[in-house]
Nucleic acid binder design. Structure first.
Lengths: 353, 353
DNA sequence: GCCGCTTCAGGAAGCGCTTCCAAAATATTT
DNA sequence: AAATATTTTGGAAGCGCTTCCTGAAGCGGC
């Protein structure tokens, strides 16, 4: 159907090797010949067959991403930045989504064995030890995003430090009893956020009663990082911790929305009765006036891609474990007097009147 | 590095053709031989090289999706359902994102020429006439999602009817003067929604003053479908239309959020002063109690994939233009007395107290 | 005019598979 | 037991490209 390199060669009266050199910008070709071939290739609408090239070159110019496909702001934003970073290179993105967690290993196996890609981005997913070694043995570069593994490159948020900062902010506001609602501890970030939170309380000599901690169910594999889980968790907190703590750190903004909904229902006013700090800074955090820790998602994506490409091109080796800092964004939900934020944000519609 | 078909053949003491037949479930092979070969293949961790297979078979088992990569709930949800539908088949998904609109044609050209895929999903993007013919000439099946083209298959929302229903709902509530905030008319859905809206007013013998219509700038290529554009549009409406209409149809929920923010600032209460109906039913519509037209996004994705696969497998031809109906979801923002919605939704936290 | 260089071009081999054709092995019929 | 039909197998050709090796052509210097 479409023109092949042979068609071009025949029409130009040259060998296929010469055509190949022409289209690949090889220096070993006469400039005149090259121009002539290129003209003819153009005329024939010739385009190299990507798969054939890959096979011959042993280079696919494709990178695979393994993503837990929950409809979550985090993953979209991340993918977007990955795409953007990639679009400046010559790599295509192929998407492997893991919807059921138990298929994770099978998916990763496929990525490994099919050799369709030059490198892999694994997002928010733990990697079993066996697999890390498989990747290394296969010589397939991997960068983990939002997760960690000793043997593999990774880019993640400084979760511990972020949680520490969130708690510290509440403490700085004068709160002495602070609760936490967290995702399920099978989630790596959830674990770290809890650690950071506890550390902050400790360092300020504050006690922590476990009744003030609610850990969401890991239902549906989302590790409890969704609105419904936050809603349920807040109801549980109200039930088990009486009176409520004056402040609450919630491990993610989506959960926070659920918390706000439950609070509203129970007549708990925010921030008057309960100061709230979230984590992520999703799009709607601004809308509801939520104080939160902003994740530099775009930077993570960009950084992971940059690193991966370097690895693929063999330009870099050695360990690579980057932790990016989350930034405290102060809005209304924590009841902070100082409004650090810019005007449009302070004008935000917030839940409490 | 990895085992090839030759390695397996040698170790099993058979020819490569036999190995190929074994792993491809060909009926022309002795069951015993097949079992033996499979065992050896397994032992050698043999996995066929996907690219080599594709090249030999002239079949890539990959489908490409061209997506305008705005961080928008709509695209995520759609991609998710596409992925889910695809995961039941043996197709991989390769993502081509168009961030700058002017690169759209170039991206589509690449998809066409590289022959990396067996079919294409084009999401929310218009296709120039020349391209439709190119796809057809190349024998590359295409399904358009959220858009239309005479010559290509498509799956879209019944935008006109949806807008009609939204407007009708407001009219049914007793409103006689209804405004509209729309995305830029270069967007196909925006155009249709305006048509449906106008039609509803006409059919009820209501006048429409153009001052009650605000069309967002197409800034950043998002056709004005974002929160900031909605905010600006609402400010313009307040400025140019005095007194405000009692009801407002907004072409998308994200814009609605901006509208609510602007309304709040201007002291316009929702729904008391202004009844609001949106379009899309994004995740946060529920949270803010927004009445809206729900798009069956997941169904669109599923349907598009199903159709595409059928086309690829040559099981179906002929025209295919499916329009799915949007469903009216009544919440608080329209001030409707009848609450059709389920309990949890009526308990939603809403912007107005 | 010959020699050694350099530059450029042709095309075979190879990437790892599928597929087809012909041949070998086995089964069935006479 | 021979003849024929059927099942099973081997491996060459081909998918469309890159790459390498070889050789031709052009050049300056002697």
């Amino acid at each position: 159907m479409a023109a092949t390199i042979y068609d071009v060669a025949k029409k130009a009266g040259v060998g296929i090797g010469t055509v190949s050199r022409a289209i690949n910008n090889s220096p070993h070709i006469n400039v005149g010949t090259k121009a002539r071939i290129l003209a003819i290739a153009n005329e024939l609408h010739y385009q190299p067959h990507a798969l054939a090239q890959s096979l011959a070159r042993k280079k696919t110019n494709t990178i695979a991403s393994v993503v837990p496909f929950f409809t979550n702001y985090f993953y979209v934003e991340l993918l977007k930045s990955v795409q953007r970073a990639l679009s400046r290179s010559h790599y295509d993105l192929i998407l492997f989504s893991v919807d059921r967690m138990n298929r994770r290993d099978r998916t990763i196996d496929r990525v490994l064995s099919e050799r369709r890609c030059d490198g892999v981005l694994i997002i928010s997913l733990g990697v079993m030890d066996g697999y890390a070694e498989k990747f290394i043995a296969a010589g397939l570069p991997v960068v983990l995003i939002d997760h960690m593994h000793q043997a593999l490159d990774s880019v993640a948020i400084a979760n511990r430090e972020g949680a520490f900062a969130a708690a510290s902010h509440l403490i700085g506001l004068g709160h002495r009893r602070i609760g936490m609602i967290n995702g399920h501890l099978s989630s790596y970030p959830a674990k770290l956020r809890l650690e950071g939170f506890r550390l902050a309380l400790e360092m300020h000599g504050l006690d922590f009663d476990d009744r003030d901690l609610v850990i969401c169910d890991a239902k549906a594999g989302e590790h409890g990082f969704n609105e419904a889980a936050g809603y349920a968790a807040m109801q549980r907190l109200i039930a088990q911790s009486h009176p409520l703590p004056g402040a609450l750190f919630v491990a993610s903004d989506v959960q926070c929305l659920g918390v706000m909904r439950a609070a509203k229902e129970a007549g708990v006013r925010i921030p008057q009765d309960l100061a709230l700090v979230g984590f992520d800074d999703i799009e709607f955090a601004k809308f509801v006036g939520l104080t939160t820790m902003r994740q530099p998602i775009a930077a993570m994506g960009r950084m992971a891609v940059t690193r991966l490409l370097k690895r693929i091109e063999g330009r870099e080796n050695g360990d690579f474990h980057r932790e990016l800092e989350a930034e405290l964004i102060v809005r209304e939900s924590c009841g902070s007097r100082q409004a650090f934020h810019v005007r449009t944000e302070s004008d935000t519609v917030s839940q409490q009147v």
